[in-house]
């Protein structure tokens, strides 16, 4: 028995060390979310879904707003499935924000999808999808390596941690939380991706997403929480015309709703909706990185003016 247990312990130790070594290799190429859970608690955050994750570049904001200071922006936006306004995302934001911060800047990206839910009852927060995704499950958001995330929420085979680190990447999650998508912008491919996105949204999103007053109230709670730690700016990012038309059908009067919220909380709101033709999109929904850089500049200038 003694020999058996010693052998098992030695073998387990060897195996655990190897597993830990693989976990230590995980980085911004491992998936689109992991690296955001491996930085310390942050001072200023960008909140939103994948539109903001890809479209707002913290490095550009830093050079214009935080130049010469120790502060930085951190993009804490994820995806429509995982980070619409709701209890899970708010709790995660609370964990990610350094509680001592009182002078932070918070950019909250809003769009109609983030105020909707695809549940039978859109106000049944117990059945919000993100509750059981990594957003609801990841309680430790500031540790490196983030083993709880890798064990519970990493959705690919672990071999991909090694493969993606050594191979050519099509997604890189930077240390400041910006998700860089490396993709061909050949006009035919862009048109194909737009078509696929429109079909997907028309078939799988528009018929099932309904306005959720609970999500709407969580937008307000999120603003309220962030206001305790600094200044909040609401932003609507642009998308391709056809996607924005779809959003108008999804939630008519969205702009007015947000303007009312902004007025109620005395925060500034900037909508890029009318200028959507000025930018390039990888698939109609997400800004291409060059356009994201331009938009981030414009956003930083606006914030500087409003400060």
């Amino acid at each position: 028995m003694k020999n058996f247990l010693i052998s098992v312990l030695v073998f387990s130790g060897l195996l655990t060390s190897s597993i830990l070594a693989v976990f230590l290799m995980a980085d911004g190429r491992s998936d689109s979310y992991y690296a955001r859970f491996t930085t310390p608690a942050q001072h200023s955050l960008i909140i939103g879904t994948s539109r903001a994750a890809q479209g707002i570049q913290p490095a550009v904001l830093d050079t214009m707003i935080y130049k010469g200071t120790a502060h930085h922006f951190f993009n804490y936006s994820f995806s429509l499935f995982d980070s619409p306004f709701g209890p899970a995302y708010l709790q995660s934001i609370e964990r990610k924000l350094d509680p001592r911060v009182t002078d932070g800047i918070f950019i909250v990206a809003v769009d109609p999808w983030m105020l909707c839910a695809k549940n039978e009852d859109p106000n049944d927060s117990l059945h919000f999808w993100e509750r059981n995704s990594f957003m609801g499950n990841t309680k430790k958001v500031n540790c490196n390596p983030n083993i709880p995330y890798l064990v519970e929420s990493y959705s690919e085979p672990y071999i991909n941690i090694i493969r993606k680190r050594t191979g050519a990447a099509d997604l890189i999650l930077h240390k400041d939380g910006w998700l860089e998508v490396i993709v061909s912008m050949d006009s035919t491919l862009v048109a194909q991706r737009l078509q696929a996105k429109l079909e997907d949204y028309n078939k799988n999103y528009l018929p099932v997403y309904k306005f959720s007053s609970v999500r709407f109230s969580y937008l307000k709670q999120t603003i309220s929480f962030l206001q305790n730690h600094g200044k909040v700016y609401l932003v609507r990012l642009p998308a391709h015309r056809k996607i924005m038309e779809m959003e108008d059908r999804l939630l008519p009067g969205f702009e007015q709703k947000i303007e009312e919220v902004a007025a109620g909380f005395k925060v500034d709101y900037l909508s890029f909706a009318a200028k959507n033709a000025d930018y390039d999109y990888v698939d109609g929904n997400h800004l291409y990185k060059a356009s994201g850089k331009i938009l981030s500049h414009q956003l930083a200038r606006w914030i500087t003016e409003k400060k």
Partner: peptide, 13 residues
Amino acid sequence: YYGLAMLIFLFAG
């Protein structure tokens, strides 16, 4: 055993 265990860890679906 080690190889098999690592294969399980790395390639588990």
